[in-house]
């Protein structure tokens, strides 16, 4: 998934073969585009109802994806004012995105959690 925003417009891409639930995909897409600077601080995500209609999913599915981002401190959800990217969101989103990518790659190579943890440990020290 991938998305980008130019002054009020927003493109969301996602992989139909992705096995993750839709709400995870939505959150991941927004995270990645924030990390890559396509979505900036103060940018507004599309209204959940609009996105739900476009994706053909329930509005609660979208809200669940947004809520995930809110809990990670990436966006702020305000009633009536929509969901806005927060100032601290960028670094959060970047870290999450990288972790997600790392885990996906490890899975592909059949590397277990312990081996991965050892690798991280090695890199950190």
């Amino acid at each position: 998934m991938y998305c980008s925003s130019i002054n009020g417009t927003m493109l969301l891409r996602f992989d139909r073969s992705d096995a993750d639930p839709i709400y995870d995909q939505i959150a991941a897409s927004v995270r990645r585009s924030i990390a890559e600077g396509d979505l900036e601080v103060g940018d507004r995500l599309p209204p959940a109802r609009e996105l739900a209609r476009a994706l053909g999913v329930n509005v609660h599915t979208v809200l669940r994806g947004y809520a995930q981002l809110r809990d990670e401190g990436i966006i702020e959800m305000r009633r009536g004012r929509g969901s806005v990217v927060l100032a601290g969101g960028r670094s959060q989103a970047r870290l999450r995105s990288l972790a997600r990518e790392l885990c996906a790659e490890a899975r592909r190579q059949g590397i277990g959690i312990e081996e991965l943890a050892a690798l991280i440990d090695e890199e950190m020290s």
């Binding site: 927003m10 969301l12 996602f14 992989d15």
Partner: peptide, 13 residues
């Protein structure tokens, strides 16, 4: 460009 298994939605105003 849209990949084979890729889907996308777009919003503008």
């Amino acid at each position: 460009e849209l990949g084979a298994g890729e889907d996308a939605v777009w919003f503008g105003m």
